[in-house]
Each structure stands twice: as C-alpha cells, then as structure tokens.
Amino acid sequence: MTETTVGRVQSPRIIRIGAGAALELADVLAQLGLSSPLIVTDKGLVALGHLARITDVLEAAGLPWGLFDEVTPDPTDACVDAGLRAVGAGNYDCIIGFGGGSPIDTAKAVSFMAVNPGHVRDYKAPAQIDRCGLPVIAIPTTGGTGSEMTRWCVITDTENPEKYNLSGLACVATAALIDWTFTTTLPARITADTAVDSLTHAIEAYVSRRAFPYTDGFALQAMPLIADHVRRAYADPEDQVAREALMQAASQAGMAFSNASVALVHGMSRPIGAHFHVAHGLSNAMLLPAVTAFSVDGACERYATCARVMGVASDTDSDTAACARLVEALRRLNADLAVPTPSSLGHKADTDMLVLMAKQALASGSPQNNPRVPTGAEIVKLYEIMWG
C-alpha cells in the first residue's frame, strides 16, 4: 500500500454465497424491510428461464414485482434512461440487478440517477456518487464481473463513444446473492471471457498502486481459483466444482479491485468496448499478456507472487524468472481459451483511432494506478501489439 496508511473498504451490507443463495431473495428483502422490487435484466436470461427462478420465490412470498428486461451488452446512457422511466412508472422500493455486469451496472445507475440531477455522464470518475437511491440487490449469473461486490459501474455514452466509470457509495449494492448454479448454462466463450476478466481484476488489484493488505488477501485467494478451474469450466460447462470456484473467485476479485482499483488493462479495455463493441472480459483477455509484459518491471516482486500463487512459478525461481513465466502463462491461457485478436474479428483501427483510444484510456484514471504508468505513445504501441 503506497498512497495512504488507511485502507478504505466499501461492500454490500448482506452477502449470501453458494448454491441456492438466490432462493433466499424473499428472506433478504424481508430482512431489509423491502417488498416491491423492479427486476433489471436482459431478454436472454428471461428466455433461458433463469428469471422464473427468482420470480417464483417472490410470488411464493406474496411480493409484487416489476420487470425491465431491455438491458443491452455494454449498457448505454439510453438504457439507463429507459430504466429510469420503468422505475418511475411503478411503486417500487428496491431494484434487483439480475444477470452479468450489464444488468447489475444498469441497476446501480438507475438507482442513483433516480435521486441525482443531470445526466449520468455528469458523474463519471473521479466524481464520487454518495447520494444513494433505491436499494440494489445484486444477483450475478456470470462468474466474472464482480459488480455485485464493487463500488463501481460502467456505462457507455451514446453521444461521444466512451465507456466511463461511475463510483461511490451509491454504486455499492445493498445485498449480493451469489449463486453459482446460474452459470452452468454459460457458453464456452462467455465462460472464458468472464473468468479472465476476474483474473485481470485480481492481478491488477494486487499490483495496483492503491493496493493494501485487506485487498491483497482477496486478490491472492482469487488468482489460484481461476488458474486451476477456468480450463475445466471452459471444457465442461456442467463442472460444478469449477463453476463454484470461478463464482467465488469473481466475488473475491471484485472485493479486491473495488477497493484497490484496477489499472492499465482496464483503462485500455474500455475504449475497445466503446468503439468496437467487444465484450469487456474479452478485451481484457486480449490485453492482459501484453500489458503484463509491459508492467512487470514496475512491480517485479508483486507480479512474481502472482505467478507463484497461480502455480506457474516456484519459490526457487527468481522474481525475474517468475515474471517471465507469468507472461508466458497468460499467453498460453489465451491460446487455450481461443482468445482472438481485434484484427481477427475484423476490427480495424488506424493511427488516429489508436491515439484517441489512448487519450480515453488515460482520461479514465485507471492507468495511473499501474505499477508502470504509460505515456500515450506507449499505450498506442501496446494497442498495436495486441491488435495483431
């Protein structure tokens, strides 16, 4: 921990984790004195039948509920506005964010924008949003984003293509019900991308200039769980042990980066999503090996520890050797998980675009947490390397 001697931690008031945690929704609402939720989700989860698992619980308890199922991947300010209209049309006392990071982030933004004036872009980081709206109950269905545990959400602007962070007490869920059983229906691509997203959260939180011992503990627990289980879940979606491990790791990594922050990978990842609509976890995976190779000299001992807890280096390896093994392991993981490059997906970026993306990455603030803080030109070079 380098910037302050006081670690500052924010987390949900209620956390329930394990198979069947979502079935305790009515009990959690009763504990909080809540009885009329608006569910914020996407149509895919409705089609899969997952939504019925929680609405059945609400109906069995005699609790009325409303539905906003228009959340899109990389939710936009327009999506938030639509959610605001939905919450304003009913007599709701809480919001349930049900799904991956997109529905949970949308639920958070709808909650605080219901009581704060202006446009959602007015609150992008480094602003801190501490005026809270309706309580948010987060029920994640992917083992990656960790949004259920964090004080962050991410929204994409439709006026100027940009993904921006929103942060503060108003972005912390009131309760998190973390039930890994929802994840067994995830396709291999999403399984891989969300797991590497979690791994990125854990590594970046551990090497962040804002890391401190409390966050270190969560990060160090998450990394080996992901390294040991991601290939298993990728190969077999019904591997319950692997699914449970990845969901636990996602929440641990979420606690780590929520309070220690992320770094260069995330700063560079958001512009890729904003301009090319690449899924957040996938763009993180694309970047992680190259950014790690660039960054290791800035925190060699810490990156070496990452390598050792992930089982890709031993205690007898020097820190320098362990760092090299970490970079190689991340490249090998991408190969095993068939992570594409942007160019292989048909995305083209000229120099002007890369310079714009580098400026947006730096403006996000995340690169300043990196062990090695890059210049704009260095970010452009990293984009060129990962673009393939």
Rank of each mutant, 00 (worst) to 15 (best):
Q128V: 13
L246Y: 06
N91K: 13
A324I: 02
R325G: 01
H275S: 10
Y123L: 11
T320Q: 14
D74A: 12
M149P: 02
T185W: 02
H201Q: 13
S111H: 07
E159P: 00
H275K: 14
A358W: 00
S35M: 03
A233N: 05
L25P: 10
V230M: 03
L362T: 10
V28Y: 00
A233R: 11
V9S: 06
H201S: 09
P224G: 08
G281V: 11
E301T: 14
D350W: 02
A304Q: 11
L362K: 12
S208G: 08
A173I: 02
L169S: 12
P103S: 08
E3I: 14
D69L: 03
Q10L: 15
Q368V: 09
D105Y: 07
C323Y: 07
V355G: 00
Q368Y: 15
I104K: 03
S11R: 12
S261G: 06
D315E: 15
K348F: 09
W180V: 04
G88C: 12
I272M: 15
N369L: 15
F276P: 01
H266V: 08
M353P: 00
R270F: 14
R16C: 01
A211D: 11
G376H: 05
L177F: 04
P371N: 01
A235S: 14
A173N: 08
R210P: 00
K108V: 08
T183F: 10
S167F: 10
A107R: 03
W180Q: 11
S283V: 11
D93R: 04
A329W: 15
I272G: 02
L48D: 06
